[in-house]
Design a protein around this nucleic acid. Structure first.
Lengths: 162, 162
DNA sequence: TTAATATGTCAATAAGGCTGACATAATTTA
DNA sequence: TAAATTATGTCAGCCTTATTGACATATTAA
């Protein structure tokens, strides 16, 4: 596969930085489109998706765990999470060790829905991985990880290597 | 540089797809944070940034050109663009060939502000490129481009190779 | 002359963030 | 044990940014 390599010595030139910034914007724009369409049909939005996704990936997580991962306020999360609980996508169980906590789990309904949402992004990313090849994928991961705030990289690594 | 390579044959496994999806989310989350903070101080939001950015990159673009690139409605663009024009960041000149068009340009004030916003993302991406190395950067570009909608890739390529 | 195009505008609606204030139950600490 | 802290929830109000639909104007093209 022919690939244009960034300039070996001066690869930090304006043009190449612009390219990364723009690709990130366009890729993210399209990446979020498919699940957004499905969510809209159920009266949900992107925020519901994130909650479903991270609760699915981290069953038994607490509200504050989710707040730390999503980095939004509890008032914002509360509205979204409340809807998901009300409509039976997420269930809360009191923590056994610390009974102030509400441990979060997807219900069967929530799992089915999350799978449906995931499938669209999964297909898109799988296609992109296939076209780009394994080495490109490794580079993709590495650059993205280094774009994350330095003090968040450990948290992200723990999350993605779960 | 030691890098974990995705599984050569079965690299489309769930875990590796999840990893890409999550990294994209976390990287984008942090990537947008710095300019968002600066924008908030001036009473602007992320949408203003996008307009400033793409007008800066494509001086003389039309309103419909911008709509196609950003893929939002003209009503949404209109509000944001109107504010930027009112406050002297963007200027509109009637098209010479087609006088219905309003060609868009950054003013000096707009250019200064855009540079300030760009600098934050530029630094972040430059650091990430440096840490990951040129080959990783090439992979980063390639995967991102393939995540973009297939029918949008030419448009995106024309934009990033400008 | 008519139709289509580029742009702008008004109005209503919605998602999803935010801040601030306050409440409750449970746990930890002094 | 009493007081402070923590985990969570909730109410109220505000902002940005997106949406749809309808309509207006100027200009260009058929």
């Amino acid at each position: 596969m022919q690939r244009k390599l960034p300039h070996s010595n001066l690869y930090l030139r304006e043009e190449e930085l612009r390219r990364g910034i723009e690709l990130l914007y366009f890729a993210y724009r399209d990446f979020t489109k498919d699940p957004d369409d499905i969510l809209a049909q159920s009266g949900f939005g992107r925020a519901h998706h994130r909650v479903l996704y991270f609760v699915g990936r981290n069953p038994g997580t607490t509200v504050s765990g989710l707040l730390g991962l999503l980095r939004i306020t509890k008032q914002s999360l509360s509205r979204v999470l409340g809807q998901l609980v009300d409509e039976g996508y997420v269930e809360q169980k009191p923590g056994e060790v610390d009974r102030r906590q509400r441990l979060l789990y997807l219900t069967d309904k929530g799992e089915d829905f999350e799978k449906k949402l995931f499938a669209t992004q999964r297909n898109r990313v799988a296609e992109a991985y296939k076209k780009a090849g394994p080495e490109a994928v490794a580079g993709f991961w590495e650059v993205l990880l280094n774009i994350v705030d330095e003090d968040q990289r450990d948290t992200v690594l723990r999350q993605i290597e779960k």
